[in-house]
Write a protein that binds this DNA or RNA. Structure first.
Length: 272
DNA sequence: CCCTACCCCTGGGGGC
DNA sequence: TGCCCCCAGGGGTAGG
């Protein structure tokens, strides 16, 4: 499910539920996620107060007053869901967190997601996060940083956008959408793009991601807000998943190609 | 270094 | 209804 806008949406949903509250209990139903859960997860979290919930790239970070941070990644199918009062945990509710009378489940059918606990001061240097590039919606990402990453690269520009070391948080949906917004063909060798077009692309990345966050992300199948509501940015897709349909601005037929094993959607007329 | 292929895992949808 | 194949929002690793 989750690219930057979806993770941001989840983080914003968790914030009012967790921040300022204490984790009163943790139940692990299945420890074998993408990486094994820490064996002492429950022991280290139980009784801890949550100070804040934040995001870096596609990772969510739950900071506690014990100096620990619970890092989560949603993989392809992960989400958090709030259980109703007398609800029995469902299949794929791998970990349950209780605060007061609320129960929150980490739910992930495919188990590509993960939960890790680490000292808060060690988050930025953790191997999963240490080499990740700039946040696209913060200073440090712009046409110049994209140009520096694109220089001498023959890799398709779409693959460059997916590279988390170049820019954080873009996935398969928003790569296609940003390239459409910038009018750039996804197969263009990155190093071939002019500074002007890379500047436009950086702007398109920011516009698309900000719009998606405002819409609560995109719900294709798995993504849900913590409340259970759907995001609705999928209704605003210009190209993603629209193969065979007309391009809204120009009427040409949207095409699908496969790059590095993943679908890319684009308009052949708007993205020459 | 650069890039593609494959793998992890489960489930949904379409064709037959 | 069942089966089989393809596809899926991520990312790490092994190869060429």
């Amino acid at each position: 499910m989750p690219e930057l806008p979806e993770v941001e949406t989840v983080v914003r949903g968790l914030l009012p539920l967790l921040a300022g509250n204490r984790i009163d209990g943790v139940v692990v139903n299945r420890p074998d996620l993408r990486l094994p859960l820490p064996v002492d997860l429950g022991q280290r979290l139980t009784g801890a107060g949550v100070t804040t919930v934040r995001r870096r790239a596609k990772y969510g970070l739950i900071d506690t007053d014990r100096g620990d941070t619970l890092l989560f990644h949603l993989g392809m199918s992960g989400r958090f869901r709030l259980l109703t009062a007398d609800e029995t945990p469902a299949r794929h509710d791998h970990v349950l967190f209780r605060t007061g009378s609320s129960r929150l489940a980490f739910h992930d059918p495919r188990r590509f997601g993960l939960l890790l606990l680490m000292p808060t001061i060690a988050v930025a240097s953790h191997p999963l996060l240490a080499r990740i590039g700039p946040e696209p919606l913060e200073a440090g990402f712009d046409g110049a940083s994209l140009a520096a990453a694109a220089r001498n690269r023959r890799t398709p520009i779409k693959a460059l956008l997916l590279d988390q070391q170049v820019v954080a948080g873009i996935g398969n949906i928003y790569a296609s959408e940003a390239l459409f917004a910038a009018g750039i063909h996804p197969a263009t060798p990155a190093g071939q793009l002019s500074a002007d077009r890379l500047h436009r692309l950086a702007g398109a990345v920011q516009t698309v991601l900000a719009s998606a966050i405002a819409a609560g992300g995109s719900t294709l199948r798995d993504h849900a807000l913590v409340s259970g509501e759907s995001g609705y940015f999928q209704h605003d897709f210009s190209v993603y998943g629209r193969v065979g349909q007309p391009c809204r601005p120009c009427g040409a037929t949207i095409e699908r190609i496969v790059q590095a094993g993943r679908s890319t959607f684009f308009c052949p007329r708007c993205q020459p």
